[in-house]
Write a protein that binds this DNA or RNA. Structure first.
Length: 236
DNA sequence: GCCCAGGTGGGTA
DNA sequence: TACCCACATGGG
């Protein structure tokens, strides 16, 4: 091994070991979580768009409406009237925007991929990610959620929970870009779909239970031993 | 009443 | 590039 290689490993190892330790602590407490909560890959896509800046509970109401109306397929979602779709997804909020985004997505699916999600999601990861990002209404988090949970591709998902948790843990400053945070995980963890799937789900669970935006319950948190924020909060 | 929730796109300086 | 804002409902 040359010196450059050694330096790279020395540089990466502290991040890699901390990310791995956090994963194991969360997995020991909460796992396995078996995400994403959906029946089909297409339902993952719908959920990923509906949950944009929205509590998952409200997405569940909307998904249930779509299920009851029998429109949780690309063809049915393409055929339904815009106003009808808006009514069905109203509980998820931003319903006009999201109705447009859902129908733009399925239009793209039929125009370029024969209406087959699996066709869209096949091919090199970066190329598929670029195609997803080209869809209006699909930003980086939505694209990575679709890749990981609908396509079973190892693309790490960054969300508000990830940013909050790893900022408190001291691994982030809090103002890094989406791509920079994603790179922290992608560059320091093995690219395994099952690992990325479970890790993101564990981050969400940890933040729902302990790492709240306000009044975090630090004392029983499984990350207390590795969290400077939590130790300070408990000491105070 | 008020804050918050698993973002994204468009406009402005 | 870096902010600022609209988008909207339901729960604590």
């Amino acid at each position: 091994m040359n010196d450059e290689g050694k330096n790279e490993i020395l540089h990466l190892t502290p991040h890699a070991s901390r990310l791995t330790e956090v994963f194991h602590r969360l997995a020991a407490r909460f796992g396995p979580l078996h995400w994403w909560p959906a029946q089909t890959p297409f339902e993952v896509v719908v959920g990923a768009i509906l949950t944009q800046n929205t509590a998952w509970r409200n997405v569940e109401y909307a998904i249930a409406n779509l299920q009851a109306a029998g429109v949780l397929t690309p063809a049915a979602l393409r055929a339904i009237e815009r106003g009808e779709l808006e009514s069905l997804i109203r509980p998820a909020g931003f319903f006009r925007q999201k109705a447009e985004r859902l129908q733009l997505f399925v239009e793209h699916l039929f125009a370029r991929h024969g209406g087959e999600l699996a066709t869209l999601l096949a091919g090199p990861l970066d190329a598929v990610r670029t195609k997803l990002l080209a869809c209006k209404g699909v930003g980086p988090e939505t694209a990575d959620s679709i890749l990981l949970y609908a396509g079973y591709r190892p693309s790490f998902v960054i969300d508000a929970y990830t940013r909050r948790l790893f900022t408190r843990l001291g691994l982030l400053g809090g103002d890094e870009s989406y791509e920079a945070i994603r790179a922290l995980f992608m560059d320091n963890l093995p690219h395994e779909t099952d690992l990325f799937n479970e890790y993101h789900a564990l981050i969400v669970e940890e933040c729902k239970v302990f790492c709240r935006k306000r009044t975090p319950l630090c004392a029983p948190c499984p990350l207390l031993a590795v969290c400077p924020y939590g130790q300070a909060a408990v000491a105070a």
